[in-house]
Write a protein that binds this DNA or RNA. Structure first.
Ligand code: NAD
Ligand code: NAD
Lengths: 211, 211
DNA sequence: AAAAAGTCGTGATGTTATTCACAAATTAAT
DNA sequence: ATTAATTTGTGAATAACATCACGACTTTTT
């Protein structure tokens, strides 16, 4: 909403900065330079300064950045004051791993409902997250606008349509399927097989000792 | 090795193209245009043609691409004729999900060994993949050059050092830790919390009905 | 045989992201 | 006080990537 001039590449790095600032703060560090931050998050220091500068002059020349101030700034920028509820569809191997992981530690994100088609899973819960039948999506999904998709790829398209109908406008898709969505819906793909394969490709085809 | 002029962005899309070509081939399709492919993988058709063109003239004007030929071409480009062995470190929630997943279906990649520090896991196997103690890395890792890292983030740095010493030069890192490696080692980060958080950020801060 | 439709490959252009490099400001040291 | 050392914020340069748009060629239709 606010000012949508933040480059996408920058926006993707914000959570990373936020996490490291949190670490620093917990360690009691009071100030940090773009150079230090750069070494920690492996992003060029000029890029970090540029990223920060989109939000105004957050640092002080010759000093660096005040950890607490910066942390507070990003906390509100990333809406960390309110918990974001997320639904998970497909409580299989991958889905279960996510359900057992607490994203709440550093990020105010919580998976509050899971859905599956397997009758033996429906009605149970995993680490406190209840598993509903996927047919109950319509009744149970209200208010939730982000979903994690970990169903078999053959089901991805059909489930996506349901999700979108129920008002979901952000999907984190772990299936290999490239799903079709209306323009107002944002999909991030995480394709493990592709990641692995492209890593192997890079190793075999790129010079070994310079990036 | 060969010609290292392939842009990184292109290289990352190759496995995706490969997978869809495989699908098409299995469906018995003989030819495909960049337009059709574009709709399937959600990549602009001009980008697809450009990507392919780095490898020479693979298509025919007015016709499109021969599925079988293209598939064969990418199979060898992606070294799909030989199986790539991969090790997994940390057979916890996430690691177990990966061990149960067969990457072999479409990609000639196989996790052949897993390592963990938990004595109750060592000596067992998951879906046929044996779990060794992490202290056995040195003896057991020979020949393997790619590793998947799914240990607690506090362990990431120490394990990475061991892996690198043993000759691993590709790491798929699922921990939130930003690990330090020598120049010749390639790390791909998959940071689930960051993905989720940046997705939420985009939804809240970007115009809703145009990309 | 001719016309129409389809499609590639790519030069040109547009867009987004990264990095350099330095003046201006601040802090730290002498 | 003065000088030296830091470090930001940013204009300008560079690099990487995506897209447009069209000539050239092929296939299909009439
Ligand atoms: N596990 C991995 O390491 C891995 C790696 C790469 C990709 N993936 C992809 O992630 C997805 C999930 O993988 P997984 O290993 O967890 O598979 P899985 O089979 O263990 O889990 C799928 C779950 O979805 C449920 N399901 C099936 N149809 C459903 C429906 N219509 N509605 C709701 N739930 C339904 C199943 O009951 C099951 O619990 C797959 O698309 C897979 O290709 C997984
Ligand atoms: N599960 C998720 O959804 C999720 C999400 C985001 C990030 N992550 C990250 O992925 C990593 C793994 O997550 P998880 O949920 O599978 O955790 P987990 O605790 O279930 O698994 C970690 C495994 O590593 C093993 N281990 C501990 N120390 C080890 C060592 N020194 N050498 C070898 N193995 C060792 C443990 O015995 C355990 O089996 C963590 O870094 C976590 O932050 C997980």
């Amino acid at each position: 909403m606010e000012q949508n001039k933040i480059p996408q590449a920058t926006a993707k790095r914000l959570p990373l900065y936020y996490r490291f600032l949190n670490n620093l703060n917990q360690q009691g560090k009071k100030r940090v330079s773009s150079k230090e931050l750069s070494e920690a998050v492996k992003v060029d220091s000029a890029t970090i300064r540029r990223d920060f500068s989109y939000f105004g002059a957050l640092g002080k020349k010759g000093y660096g950045y005040n950890v607490e101030y910066l942390l507070g700034f990003f906390r509100s920028t990333l809406d960390q004051h309110e918990v974001t509820e997320v639904a998970l569809i497909g409580a299989g191997n991958l889905g279960t791993a996510f359900l057992k992981y607490s994203f709440l530690k550093n990020n105010n994100i919580r998976i509050t409902k899971a859905f599956d088609a397997d009758p033996s899973k429906v009605g149970t819960d995993i680490d406190g997250v209840p598993i509903y039948h996927v047919d109950e999506l319509v009744e149970q999904l209200d208010g939730i606008s982000v979903a994690i998709l970990t169903v078999p790829s053959s089901e991805a398209e059909a489930i996506t349509e349901k999700l979108v109908n129920e008002g979901v406008n952000g999907i984190l898709n772990f299936t290999p399927a490239r799903i079709t969505v209306p323009q107002h819906v944002r999909v991030h793909h995480i394709d493990l097989a592709v990641e692995l394969q492209s890593l192997v490709y890079f190793l075999k085809h790129y010079p070994l000792d310079k990036e």
